[in-house]
C-alpha cells in the first residue's frame, strides 16, 4: 500500500458518494448515463467474483462490497425510483454500449494473465472499465449545462485511474511489480478523460459553469 493507491481508492469512493448524494438530495439523475452505470455493475460483478475464491482482506473486501452495492443501488434508482427515473435523459443517452462488451470479452479471452474462468472475467472487467465512461462522455457533450455534482463526479472518476497510474509507477520502482494488462488499460482509461479534464479545469479556473463543446 502506498499513498497514491490509498488516494486513488478514496477518490473512487468519493466519486460514487458524490453521485449518490446528487441522486438522493436532488432526486434527479439528469446528466448521468444509465448505460455507463450498467457497465460499471458488469465491471464490478465480473471483477469481484473473487470475493468467493480469495481470502478476505481488511482493506480490499469492504471496498469490493461497497463498489458492488453502490453501483447496483445507482442503477436501481435510475431504473425504478418513481421520481428519479423520470429525470433520466434517455433520449440523449445514445451510445450503443452493448458494442463495447463483445470486443472486451474477445480481448479478455485472448489476453489474460491465466486462461481460467476467474482470470478471463477479471481481464474482461479491466478492459470494460477502461471504456465504460464513453456513454457518459457522449451524454455530457450533448448537455447544454452540466451541474456541479455531475461535473465533480466525472472528474473524480477520471482522477481515480490517473492516481492508479502513479501507484503503478511507484510499485514498479519500489516493488518491481510489472502488470501490463491493467497498466495499458488504465492508460487508455485515463486518456479518454483528457478532453474532459481540460474543460473541467478551464471552467474551474475561470469560475464558469462547465460546458463541453
Amino acid at each position: 500500500m502506498n499513498a497514491f493507491r490509498l488516494l486513488a481508492d478514496l477518490t473512487h469512493l468519493l466519486s460514487i458518494i458524490i453521485l449518490l448524494v446528487k441522486i438522493r438530495t436532488t432526486k434527479s439523475c439528469a446528466g448521468i448515463s444509465l448505460k455507463t452505470q450498467d457497465l460499471y455493475v458488469l465491471v464490478f460483478i465480473s471483477r469481484y467474483l473473487d470475493l468467493f475464491t480469495r481470502p478476505l482482506s481488511l482493506y480490499n473486501t469492504p471496498f469490493k462490497l461497497v463498489f458492488l452495492a453502490t453501483s447496483i443501488t445507482i442503477v436501481y434508482y435510475m431504473r425504478y425510483h418513481k421520481v428519479v427515473k423520470q429525470t433520466y435523459n434517455k433520449d440523449s443517452d445514445t451510445f450503443k454500449h452493448y458494442f463495447l462488451i463483445l470486443p472486451c470479452a474477445v480481448l479478455a479471452f485472448f489476453i489474460n494473465p491465466k486462461f481460467t474462468f476467474i482470470e478471463v472475467l477479471w481481464s474482461f472487467s479491466i478492459y470494460l472499465e477502461a471504456v465504460a465512461i464513453l456513454p457518459q462522455l457522449v451524454l455530457l457533450q450533448s448537455s447544454s449545462n452540466i451541474d456541479n455534482l455531475t461535473g465533480n463526479y466525472v472528474f473524480m472518476l477520471g482522477a481515480y485511474r490517473a492516481l492508479y497510474l502513479l501507484n503503478w509507477i511507484y510499485r514498479f520502482f519500489a516493488e518491481d511489480v510489472v502488470r501490463w494488462i491493467p497498466w495499458i488499460a488504465g492508460l487508455v482509461q485515463t486518456a479518454l478523460y483528457a478532453d474532459f479534464f481540460y474543460y473541467y479545469i478551464k471552467s474551474w479556473r475561470n469560475n464558469e459553469r462547465l460546458k463541453l463543446p
Binding site: 493507491r5 481508492d9 473512487h12 473473487d50 480490499n60 471496498f63 469490493k64 463498489f67 494473465p113 491465466k114 481460467t116 476467474i118 482470470e119 477479471w122 492508479y164 501507484n167 502488470r179 491493467p182
Partner: peptide, 10 residues
C-alpha cells in the same frame, strides 16, 4: 508460474 496472479488491487 502456474499460480494464478495475485490481484491485490481494486
Amino acid at each position: 508460474s502456474s499460480q494464478p496472479p495475485n490481484h491485490d488491487e481494486l
